[in-house]
């Protein structure tokens, strides 16, 4: 078995092009995500999943020149897309991972990036 990270590629909302979904829009999506997660648990492949708050809530720490620590408000990089949520699954091979990723796309309606864990 091998673990894969399924990342939800979420369009940035800073530009106003992609407004944050309203609670009414979000409700059916969350219901589908919950159903999919219980399918994953039943199949014995689910390891972890979670949705993330907006990038504007992020804080970045980095090594400072003086050997100390630098604390900066905001995400590491402003991008057109950001990581909106993630699921970790433990499956036999890439085809199985792509299968679950396809079902995640169907549930959320956003692109999913599939990446194997190195360790």
């Amino acid at each position: 078995m091998a673990q894969y990270l399924l990342s939800v590629v979420t369009p940035g909302s800073g530009t106003g092009e992609h407004p944050v979904p309203t609670p009414e829009q979000l409700e059916p999506i969350m219901a589908r995500v919950a159903a999919l997660q219980s399918d994953m648990r039943e199949a014995g492949v689910w390891v972890f999943s979670g949705g993330l708050e907006a990038p504007s809530t992020a804080t970045v720490l980095r090594p400072a020149d003086d050997g100390g620590l630098l604390t900066v408000d905001g995400p590491f990089a402003e991008g057109k897309e950001y990581l909106g949520g993630l699921t970790v699954i433990d499956v036999a091979d890439l085809d199985a991972a792509l299968d679950w990723a396809g079902r995640t796309v169907a549930a959320i309606g956003l692109p999913i990036e599939v990446r194997p864990f190195a360790w």
Partner: peptide, 14 residues
């Protein structure tokens, strides 16, 4: 090798 692309003929449905 690293993403584990399987060594098989896909199932009929795929």
């Amino acid at each position: 090798r690293t993403a584990r692309i399987p060594w098989r003929v896909p199932a009929e449905a795929d």
